[in-house]
Nucleic acid binder design. Structure first.
Lengths: 285, 285
DNA sequence: AGACTCAACGAAAAGAATTTACACCGGACC
DNA sequence: GGTCCGGTGTAAATTCTTTTCGTTGAGTCT
C-alpha cells in the first residue's frame, strides 16, 4: 500500500496535533522532502517530537525513512505523469515531427494500457469459451476494422481454427444464415454504429450464432446486439488520430482473445504454430 | 540529465577517493538512501568529508539533497520497471488469463515505447520525403506484415495518394518494373529475411524506385536492400508472441510515416479525411 | 638536494537535524 | 480528591552533516 493512502487511512485515528501534520503532508507531500523536521513542526504549529510520533504512527521508524520512502513514491508518480507525455493534446500542424510522433505514441500507449486495465475478464473468458466451442468463426469489419478482423482470422487459421473474414455485406449475411455447426460471429467497429457490421451480428444472432462485438462505444447498437461486448478505451478528440489509435486498441483485444483461445489447447496450439512456422521457413529456403 | 549519468560523466575526472564513492553509488545507488554519510564513508574506506566533496563534485549542495534526488530517481526507475510488469517472461501455459494478458500488454507497450525512442528521425524524414514526392506507392508484405501494408495503403488512399498493396510476388515484381512516374516501394518484414519482400524491394530499386524497409532486423538483407530502413524494437523470445507484438510496432512506424506525410499537406489532408469521412457517413445513413 | 606549491585527504570541531527522555496538562475513571 | 493515561511540548542527548584545518605526498622550481 502506498504511503499516501496509509496516511489517509490513519488520519481519522490520529490525535489533533498529528492530524495537522497528516493534513499538511497529504496536501503537499513534497514538504517532507523539502523541509527539515523542525521546519515542518513549525509549519504545523507543533513540536518536532510530534512529527516523530507521526512518522511512527504511519509505520516508519523516523523522519529520515519516511522522507526516503516519500521521495521514492513522488518519483514514481512523476514518472507516471511524464510517461503519459503530451497528453490529450491534439496533433496539430504546428507540431514538429518529433512532437507529433511522441503525442501519437502517448495516445497509443494509453490506449493499450487502459483497454487492458478496464478489460472485463468475465466477458473475455465467455468470449473465449464461445470461440473455443465454435466450429466456424465468422469475422466482419469495414475500413480500418477490416484489417483487425483479418488479423484475428489469420491468427486463428494458423492454429487450425476455421476462421473466415467476410468480404462484403452480402457474403456476411449469407454466411451467417447458413449455419450447419456451432458458429460464432465477431463484429469489429470502432464507433459501434457501422450499419453493415450491425446487420451482420444481428443476422448471425437470429440464426443461432454466438455473437461478440469489439468496439469502443459502450452504449452502441453493436454492443447491445452482441452476446458479449469487448471495449477498447481510446481517447481521441477527432477522427484524425482515431484510425490509428483505435485499431491498436482493437488489435490488443484481438491478442487477448487469441491468447485465451491458444491457452485452451496450449500444446496443440504451440505445435500448430511451430508447424506453420516451419512450413513457411521451408518455403523460403 | 539524470544523476546517474552525471556521476558517470564526472567519474573519470574524480580523484581516487571520490572515485571509490562514485563506483559504490553507481553499482548500487540505493546505498545512498539506506546508509548515512558515515556508513557510506566507511564502506568506501574514506572520510565523511570526502563524501561531502563528492556530493559537491556532482552538483549537489550536500548529502541530503543528493539523497532526495536519488530517491526520486530510483522511484522513477522502479515505476518504469513495474509499469512494464512481468518482464521478458515468456507467456506460458501456467499463466492465468490475467497474467498472460498483462504480460502481452507489457510487451506491446514496451515495443511502442522503444520503437519510438530509438526511431531515427533523419531516416523517417527522408522516408516521408520519398513518399511525399512519389506518384505511386507500392507496398508489399507477407503474412502478418501484409495487414500492416494494407493498413498503410488504406490510410494513404484516404488522403488521396496512389497506394497499392501488391497481392502476390508476381504482381509485386511486375508492378515494380513498370514505373512510369516517381515510385516508392515499401517492404514490410519482421525478420527482414522474407525472400519475396526482399526481391520486391530489389527489383523496384533496380528500376529506379525509392525503397523503404520496415523491419526489426538491423543487419538484415531487407534493411541493406533499401534506401531507408525503419526499425521496430521488439523483445520477444519466441515466435509465439512475435506476430502480435511485432505488428503493433510495425503499425506504430506506419503511423509515424502517415503523420509525416499528412503534415506535409496538412490542410489538404484534413480536408480529404473529412470528405472521405463524410462520404462514408452519407453511405451509412 | 632542498624548498615550495598544491591537490587530496582525513581528523576533529562546529553546527544541524533527529531522536529520546521527561515533565506537564487535562480529562476519564475509580 | 486521587490516580491513571493519552496527548503534548521542552529540553537534553544523540546522531548526522558540514566546515575547518592540518597533514601528507607528488610534482615543480631554484
Amino acid at each position: 500500500m502506498s504511503i499516501q493512502s496509509t496516511i489517509e487511512a490513519a488520519a481519522s485515528t490520529l490525535p489533533p496535533s498529528l492530524s495537522r501534520i497528516a493534513k499538511a503532508v497529504r496536501e503537499n507531500p513534497s514538504v517532507v522532502i523539502d523541509k527539515t523536521i523542525n521546519e515542518l513542526a513549525d509549519e504545523c504549529r507543533t513540536s518536532v517530537a510530534s512529527v516523530v510520533r507521526f512518522c511512527r504512527a504511519i509505520g516508519f521508524s523516523g523522519y529520515a525513512p519516511l522522507r526516503m520512502a516519500l521521495a521514492t513514491e513522488l518519483g514514481k508518480e512523476a514518472a507516471q505523469f511524464s510517461a503519459r507525455g503530451a497528453f490529450g493534446s491534439e496533433i496539430s500542424d504546428d507540431d514538429t515531427l518529433q512532437e507529433a510522433v511522441s503525442k501519437l505514441a502517448s495516445l497509443e500507449l494509453l490506449a493499450i494500457e487502459e483497454t487492458v486495465a478496464r478489460l472485463d475478464f468475465d466477458v473475455l473468458e465467455a468470449s473465449i469459451d464461445m470461440i473455443d466451442g465454435a466450429e466456424r468463426i465468422l469475422l466482419y469489419g469495414i475500413g480500418a476494422s477490416q484489417f483487425v478482423a483479418e488479423d484475428l482470422a489469420h491468427k486463428l487459421l494458423r492454429v487450425g481454427r476455421n476462421a473466415h473474414v467476410l468480404a462484403d455485406p452480402h457474403e456476411a449475411v449469407a454466411a451467417s444464415v447458413l449455419q450447419t455447426a456451432p458458429t460464432v460471429a465477431i463484429g469489429f467497429s470502432h464507433a459501434g454504429s457501422t450499419i453493415e457490421t450491425l446487420r451482420f451480428l444481428e443476422t448471425a444472432r437470429a440464426h443461432g450464432a454466438g455473437t461478440i462485438a469489439v468496439t469502443s462505444a459502450k452504449d452502441s447498437p453493436l454492443a447491445r446486439a452482441a452476446d458479449h461486448a469487448l471495449f477498447t478505451e481510446v481517447r481521441e478528440s477527432s477522427f484524425r488520430a482515431g484510425a490509428m489509435v483505435s485499431r491498436i486498441a482493437q488489435l490488443t483485444l484481438v491478442d487477448c482473445l487469441f491468447i485465451g483461445v491458444a491457452k485452451r489447447r496450449f500444446s496443440e496450439t504451440v505445435d500448430a504454430l511451430q508447424r506453420t512456422h516451419d512450413a513457411m521457413r521451408a518455403l523460403r529456403d
